[in-house]
Structures are given as structure tokens and as C-alpha cells.
């Protein structure tokens, strides 16, 4: 039980990557997930996350039934307390648009996370594996990553939006790509602790090709840190997608979207607070939920040393 390292796992840009100790074998993902959800914290996180996901998935169907308005219907004059949550800046029903607005954030955040994790895992494993050969590939990958790491993620996204204009695909790509070097650092460090193991050396001796060694020997043994990264990147992706829409540079009107809804209604926060509060609370609950699961995963993954179950 290494209680001291567990909390550093979840910290962005932890400087001391040496915390990933040598000879650490990580448990199979199924076992890790099962043990993670034995923790109360992970279960609370899962409930919070599922509530918001359910709202996002069912909301578009339930909204019109509950309120009697379609997403783009005008319900009355702007910023009036009509209906359950009032009307928005154009006089549309706030509750209907809130229920309809969870889709883009979830979809874009998931896609960006997938790009970041897959790209980062591949780059990190290649770098870590070639480090042991002393080849240039390691240096090339990691230095290339350093350039992307010289921008705050949001600022790089803003640069891309300024040049190419905002679109869903661009948001997903730019947020996903900026995740890659961050994930790659973790994947490389985990790979380094695996490549020296006998089973990898044996596979190399038999002349197993690199891609097969990485896929069948290395990848299954670094799933612990990768799962933690997955949770962390998902939490950040939700934040970035929502932030960009909040800035008016992400999802564009007239789409229903939580970040955009906050942007549209914040001028009337005093007289019609629900147009801002509902999406803010949904994003808050969602990110808190995913972060609680991630933190539990990190603790469980850090505790898992020695033989894999």
C-alpha cells in the first residue's frame, strides 16, 4: 500500500514521473474496474455521472413532452419567468433547451478523449519501447510533444478556431491532439517499467514483430495508468468543450448546448438565473462525477502492485 503516491496520480503535469515504480505489474482492466467500484467514492461518482448522462440522452425526447415546447419554439417574451425555468434570451423555453443541450458536450468530449488516449498510447508506447534500443524515435516523439505542451490547451484550440473557424470536428481534433503528448508521457513511463520484464525480452528474442509485442505484451500491462488518463482526459475534455462554447467559439447557435446556453443567458443572470444555473450545475455534477471515478481508479491502480489478479 503506497498511500503517498496515490494523490499525485491525478495531478496535471506531475513533475515526478519517477513515481511509477519499476517492476510494477498492473492488473487486468476488468479486475481493476471491479475493485475500483468497490470504493464508495467511485460509486457516488458513477451515480453523479449517470444522472447527467441520462439527462443528456433522454432529455431531447422528454423535453417536448414535459414542457410542451420543441427546442426551437418561442414560448414567450425573453427572460420571463414563464414555465418551470423561464424563457431564454430569445424567448425560448429554458428547460426544454437545457434538456436538449447535453448531447454536444458529451459527444465531443468522448471523441476528443478517444483521440487523445489512442494517439497518446501509441506514441508513448513507441517512445518507451524505442528508448530501450537507444533509437532516435523516443527523442523525436517526446520533443515533438514538448512543442505542443508549450501552449495551454485552450489557447491552442483558440488559435485553431481563429484560423479555421469553429466546427465540431475542429474542436474534437484540436482538443484530442493536445491531449496526445500528455497521455504519451504517462504511457511512455509505464512502458519503460514493462519493457525490461522477462516476458517482453523473451518475445523479442523469438523475433516477435514490434507491433505485436506492443499490442499483446506491453498494452495489457499498462492499462492501469491508461485508464486513469482516460478518466482525467474525459474530465478535462468536458471542461474544454464547455468552455469553448461558453466563450461563443464552440457550438454555434441556434443549436441547444449547455456551454452556449450559459453564454446566451448570462447577461440576465439576475432576473432569469435558471438559463445559466441549470447547465452550470449539470456540467459541475458531470465533471465531479468523472473525477471521483478517476481518483478512485488512480488509488486502486497505485495500490495494485505485484502479481496481477
Amino acid at each position: 500500500m503506497s498511500a503517498s503516491t496515490e494523490n499525485t496520480e491525478n495531478t496535471e503535469h506531475t513533475g515526478n514521473t519517477e513515481n511509477v515504480t519499476e517492476n510494477t505489474a498492473y492488473a487486468a482492466p476488468a479486475g481493476l474496474i471491479r475493485r475500483t467500484f468497490r470504493r464508495r467514492q467511485a460509486r457516488i461518482g458513477a451515480v453523479l455521472t449517470l444522472v447527467v448522462v441520462a439527462v443528456a440522452l433522454l432529455g431531447p425526447l422528454l423535453g417536448p413532452v414535459l414542457t410542451g415546447y420543441a427546442v426551437d419554439d418561442f414560448a414567450g417574451r425573453p427572460f420571463r419567468p414563464d414555465g418551470l425555468a423561464g424563457t431564454d434570451d430569445l424567448g425560448r423555453d429554458v428547460l426544454t433547451r437545457f434538456l436538449a443541450g447535453g448531447g454536444p458536450v458529451l459527444l465531443y468530449a468522448l471523441a476528443a478523449t478517444a483521440i487523445g488516449i489512442i494517439g497518446g498510447a501509441v506514441a508513448g508506447m513507441l517512445a518507451g519501447y524505442s528508448h530501450s534500443d537507444g533509437s532516435r524515435l523516443d527523442t523525436l516523439i517526446m520533443r515533438g510533444g514538448d512543442v505542443l505542451l508549450s501552449f495551454p490547451q485552450l489557447v491552442l484550440a483558440l488559435l485553431a478556431v481563429a484560423v479555421l473557424g469553429s466546427s465540431g470536428l475542429l474542436l474534437v481534433l484540436v482538443i484530442g491532439i493536445t491531449h496526445i503528448p500528455r497521455v504519451a508521457r504517462v504511457a511512455r513511463q509505464a512502458t519503460l517499467s514493462v519493457v525490461g520484464q522477462d516476458y517482453v525480452l523473451a518475445a523479442r528474442m523469438y523475433g516477435v514483430p514490434r507491433r505485436r509485442i506492443l499490442a499483446t505484451e506491453v498494452l495489457p500491462n499498462i492499462t492501469g495508468p491508461l485508464m486513469v488518463e482516460l478518466g482525467l482526459r474525459l474530465t478535462y475534455s468536458i471542461g474544454y468543450v464547455a468552455s469553448l462554447s461558453f466563450l461563443g467559439l464552440g457550438v454555434q447557435p441556434p443549436a441547444a448546448d449547455w456551454g452556449l446556453q450559459i453564454n446566451e443567458n448570462r447577461i440576465a443572470l439576475i432576473i432569469a438565473p435558471w438559463g445559466v444555473l441549470l447547465p452550470v450545475l449539470a456540467i459541475a455534477v458531470l465533471t465531479i462525477g468523472t473525477n471521483m471515478i478517476t481518483d478512485a481508479l488512480a488509488k486502486e491502480s497505485a495500490d495494485t502492485t505485484g502479481e496481477a489478479a
Binding site: I262, V280, A284, D295
Partner: peptide
């Protein structure tokens, strides 16, 4: 853990609601 999860604009809006509006 809770604060680290929240995007900065969420914290900002909640503070505005609490202390300004």
C-alpha cells in the same frame, strides 16, 4: 477533488451567483 474537477467558468459563475447576483 471537487474543485479540481470543475472548469474555471463553472467556479466563476457559481461565485457570481453567490456573491454578486
Amino acid at each position: 477533488l471537487v474543485l479540481a474537477a470543475l472548469p474555471e467558468f463553472v467556479i466563476g459563475v457559481l461565485l457570481v451567483v453567490l456573491f454578486a447576483t
